[in-house]
Simulated scan of single mutants.
Amino acid sequence: MMDLLYLYIFLLAAFVGYEVISRVPVILHTPLMSGSNFVHGVVLVGSMWALAHAETPLQLVLGFLAVLLGAANAAGGYVVTERMLGMFAAKGDARAVTRKEA
């Protein structure tokens, strides 16, 4: 019974997350991500906690997927933030020049 509850919560969270993000205008998406990178870290820690307390194979699979997707989401948020900051860097900024050469 608990497995179905966890699966329901997982599917509900996936659906709500998709609906919320899909309604964000494109122009606000990057600043929104840069401002919410800390939330991705909290999600990742929560998914690691859920994986550590998993008991059944279904819980292990869902916990592993949560950690995998949470880590990808956190890393993607920082990549997008770095790219956004690079777009607004001054032309003489040494860090911006180094990034473009690499």
Rank of each mutant, 00 (worst) to 15 (best):
M1F: 15
M1L: 14
D3T: 11
L5T: 12
L5V: 15
L7N: 02
L7E: 01
L7W: 02
L7K: 06
Y8M: 14
Y8F: 10
I9Y: 04
I9M: 12
I9A: 13
F10N: 11
F10T: 14
L11W: 08
L11E: 11
L12S: 11
A13M: 08
A13F: 13
A13T: 09
F15K: 03
V16F: 14
V16A: 15
G17W: 11
Y18R: 08
Y18P: 02
Y18S: 12
Y18Q: 12
V20G: 08
V20L: 14
V20H: 07
I21Q: 06
I21M: 05
I21N: 02
I21S: 06
R23L: 09
V24Y: 01
V24S: 05
V24P: 01
P25K: 11
V26E: 13
L28P: 00
L28Y: 12
H29N: 10
T30M: 10
T30R: 12
L32V: 06
M33Q: 04
S34P: 04
G35K: 07
S36I: 10
S36R: 07
F38P: 02
F38Q: 09
F38G: 15
V39E: 03
H40K: 08
G41K: 00
V42G: 03
V42E: 06
V42Y: 00
V43Q: 01
L44S: 02
V45G: 04
G46W: 07
G46R: 03
S47L: 01
M48F: 06
W49M: 13
W49G: 07
A50E: 01
L51H: 03
L51I: 03
H53Q: 14
A54E: 02
E55V: 14
T56R: 03
P57I: 11
P57C: 07
P57V: 12
L58R: 03
L58I: 10
L58S: 02
Q59F: 00
L60R: 12
V61F: 00
V61Y: 02
V61K: 02
L62K: 01
L62N: 01
L62Q: 00
G63T: 01
G63A: 02
G63N: 01
F64D: 00
L65K: 00
A66C: 06
V67N: 00
L68Q: 05
L68W: 09
L69I: 12
L69C: 06
G70C: 01
G70P: 00
A71M: 08
A71Y: 05
A72Y: 08
N73Q: 12
A74S: 10
A74I: 09
A75P: 05
A75D: 02
Y78A: 08
V79R: 15
V80S: 09
V80E: 15
V80M: 15
V80G: 06
V80T: 14
E82S: 10
E82C: 08
R83F: 07
R83G: 07
M84H: 13
M84F: 11
L85R: 06
L85P: 00
L85G: 03
F88Y: 08
F88D: 07
F88I: 13
F88R: 11
A90H: 14
G92V: 13
D93K: 11
D93G: 05
D93N: 13
D93V: 14
R95D: 07
R95H: 13
R95I: 13
A96V: 09
V97L: 15
R99P: 10
R99V: 15
K100V: 09
A102T: 07
A102W: 09
